[in-house]
Every structure is written in structure tokens, then in C-alpha cells.
Nucleic acid binder design. Sequence first.
DNA 1: GCCGGATTTTGACGTACGTACGATCAACGC
DNA 2: GCGTTGATCGTACGTACGTCAAAATCCGGC
Lengths: 191, 191
Amino acid sequence: MSQREDLLAGARTCLVEKGYGRTTARDIAAASGAHLASIGYHFGSKDNLMNTAVLEAVSEWGDAIEAAVSASRAEDPPNRLRVLLHSLFRQLPEQRGLLVASVQAYAQAQFDEGIRDDLARGIREGRRELAALLLNVEPDRVDPAAVAGLGSMAYNFVTGYVLQYLVDPEALPTVDQAIEGLRVLIPAARE
Amino acid sequence: MSQREDLLAGARTCLVEKGYGRTTARDIAAASGAHLASIGYHFGSKDNLMNTAVLEAVSEWGDAIEAAVSASRAEDPPNRLRVLLHSLFRQLPEQRGLLVASVQAYAQAQFDEGIRDDLARGIREGRRELAALLLNVEPDRVDPAAVAGLGSMAYNFVTGYVLQYLVDPEALPTVDQAIEGLRVLIPAARE
DNA sequence: GCCGGATTTTGACGTACGTACGATCAACGC
DNA sequence: GCGTTGATCGTACGTACGTCAAAATCCGGC
């Protein structure tokens, strides 16, 4: 394993254990087994390494959630939403590290245009993919309005759920409670 | 205005402009007009001041959203949700500073039990109040299941919306798109 | 087997950090 | 007037920070 990869892994570890702001270059060196000066050689600066690490984590979390849902065989959006929430629910504990790192990314994105742009692109992709998954069509065939509506709402769910889990996991609602809560918000009779 | 309040205001400014991790004690002194050493005198440490400032910001944002929605006269939850989303939508730009600070709070909460506990309490309160607002009943009369379901979902909406706004405001869906997206997720015919 | 570029290691430099300490000051009861 | 108390100020200490230049090491191509 190259030092470059070691450094990325170490930076991720520090990100989860100490956060973006409190991680020092020496912390990363210690966590990765690599040497302090290698950060500069491979990434130019410590900040650049940290930014690469947070974005990597966000991307992996996106892949994880996508993989978990795309296996669903449910047919209509409501049932697909149920599958999404269940797989989200199941993944929260085991992906906790990625989630913590992702929150760091969102916080840092407010002050770093590079992170923000990357994150924005990821959100747009994520929305499109979520909409496609829920509607059970190909991502490139989703109606733009569905991306903005359905996709956005699904994305909001996921991020809100994650934040709630990270801060107060004991009060997290069950999937059934969540869906029942949604029902109240929508006029029961459509036409 | 006392230096204590000046320091809090200055810390908030720095929080919004530089973030939690990159704000130094000297930054706060400069932004507040107070003296460097006053931080220790009034708050014990710079971290303690910063934590006080983030939690203050989160609390204010909660008050702002609550005040905006509680004026609603709509009767049923779906229409109240519409009012909530509209007032949320309207407040996003003018409260941007509070939002940025709140994201910093969430990020920092992962590593500071004090912040996390305070934030968790705020979330529980927020959920209860949102559920009460949407159901149009007193907060202390809300069914616990409604807090976990409806309240949680509403809270997820708000946080998700905020994050999306901060990272990629141009792609933010309109209120109508959002509600239409929600509709797709719920079985149209209930009984 | 040695040459040359890529990588790793060493060591240190300059700086900026948070905090502590004592001096100074303003207000006020007595 | 004077001492007490709470607040503000000036300053400096010790440390830990990110970065860099140069030396050392590795390693495939010949």
C-alpha cells in the first residue's frame, strides 16, 4: 500500500475521531504510519489532503446508499421508499464513520469553494439517482421536475435522518413511524 | 454593551466567516473589539466561548422558524406544511448566518458531548413543536407517536432543506415541487 | 551493477497559537 | 479618602503548528 493511500486512510481516521478542525498534520502522519513530510509531497498541503479525504468519504457514502436501494424489487414509489428507509436505517450504525466525515464536509464546504462545488455536484447526482430508484427508471430518463421534487425530498430525508442519527440516535423514529408521519402531511384523497 | 456580549457577537461573526476550526482567539478579539485576554476572563477558554456561540445561534434559528410558522391559520396538516415550507423558503437567505453557524454546531457536536447534548435537547423540542404546529394543538398535548413520526419528518425536511440550500442554493426545489415530490411517495388512496 | 527519477526521511525554521500573570482602571460602600 | 471588587489591558511564555530543503533510500531499465 502506497503512502499516498495510507495518508488518505489516516486522514479519514482523524476526520472521524477528531474532526476537520482539530486534526493536525502530525496526527495524520501518526494515524497513517506515513511520514510527516510525505503529506506535502503527495498532496501539496495538509488542507488539500483533508479535502480529498472528506470528498472521498462523501462519495463512498453515496455509493453505499445507492447500492443498498438499487437491489429493491418493489414496484411503486411508496414501497420503494420503504425499502430505502429500511436500508438507510440498517446502514446508519455500520457507516457511522462515513457519516461523521460527511458532516465535516458539509461544514467545511461553507468556506471552501472546491469542496462546495464537489459536494453540489454530488447532491445533484444523488437526487437524480434517488428519484430514478424510487420511480424505478434509468437515471438519465428521469423527468427534471421529478428530480427537483421527488429527488430533492428523498435527499432531504436521507440527510435529515443522518443528522438526527448522529446527534440523538435514541430518538430516531422507526421506519413505520416515519412513513405514518409522512402520510399526515399529504392530502389523503388526490383526485 | 458589555465585553461579554461583544465577544459572543464577535465569535458568531467569526463562526460564519471562517468556521469553527479556523477561528482564532485573536480573530474573535479583533471582530468584537474586546481584548484578547477577556476571552479567558469571561468564558474560561476560547473553546467554551465558541461553543456558547454556536449553541446560541442554533437556538435562535429554532426560534425564528417557530415564530414564522406559528402565525399560520391553515387548518389541516398538509396546508400547514405548505405554510411551513413557504416561511422556511423565505427565511433561508436572510438567516444564512445562523444556518452556517448551525452546521458548524452539528459538525462540532460529533466531538463535544456538551454541544451534542444541548443539540439533542433542541432537536427533541423542535420536533415536538413542529408536530404541534402542523397538527395545530398545544405542544404538551401532542401524541408521542406523532412527535416521533410527524415531528421527525418535519424536522428532517427542515434540516435537509437547509443543507441543500447552503451547498447548492440554485438547485433548491420550489415549495410546489417539494410537495408534489412528497405526494408520489405516499399511497394516494388511503382507505 | 549502476544510473536516474521517484519516493521517503530527517531535521529544522519561522510563525501563530491559547493561555496565564500582573498591572491598571472604574465604581462604590463606608 | 481609601480599600475592595470586578473588569480590562499589555505582554510574554511555552508549545505545537504547517512547510520546506536537502539528504537518504528505493527501484526499474539498461
